[in-house]
């Protein structure tokens, strides 16, 4: 059972199936409650995590998510880093456009997730993979 009491508490989940997407959601929810995010912010970070975990699975061909408690000295927060070694994203601007999709979805995963978090960083290289880091701070 995760306790999240250590300052550098982090937990890594492999994302190789649908079930793992559910697991990421549950882990993020547990930590979001532990760092006392508001209910709306909990909902936003869990939703963003769900979108990005599915992207890691569907577009990245699987990978992992590292969920950790962070602190910037003034307030606590939650950070999730999604990493895959998939094909990478050739046109990032296009991928971040609402409604653009290559996978038959609604094209809201990446652009929508970005709107739901406070910090969003993406590092991608064609042929190497994609790493996305999202952070939500307590208010």
């Amino acid at each position: 059972m995760t306790t999240w009491d250590g300052a550098a508490a982090a937990e890594r989940v492999a994302i190789i199936s649908d079930q793992d997407v559910v697991r990421v959601r549950q882990l993020v929810r547990t930590l979001a409650v532990a760092v006392k995010l508001s209910l709306v912010d909990q909902t936003k970070i869990v939703t963003a995590a769900s979108e990005l975990a599915r992207n890691t699975l569907v577009y990245g061909g699987g990978g992992n998510a590292e969920v950790s408690r962070v602190d910037n000295g003034r307030k606590p927060g939650i950070r999730i880093v999604f990493a895959d070694e998939g094909p990478g994203i050739p046109d990032l601007d296009l991928a971040l456009t609402d409604g653009y999709t290559t996978g038959g979805g609604m094209g809201l995963g990446l652009s929508g997730a970005r709107r739901l978090v406070d910090e969003f960083e993406i590092d991608t290289e064609v042929g190497k993979g994609t790493t996305i880091s999202v952070t939500k701070w307590c208010r």
Binding site: V40, T43, D98, L116
Partner: peptide, 14 residues
């Protein structure tokens, strides 16, 4: 639908 879900859905773009 819960209120927090409605807020999140709209912000997500759905």
């Amino acid at each position: 639908m819960r209120p927090a879900v409605a807020i999140t859905l709209v912000e997500l773009g759905l």
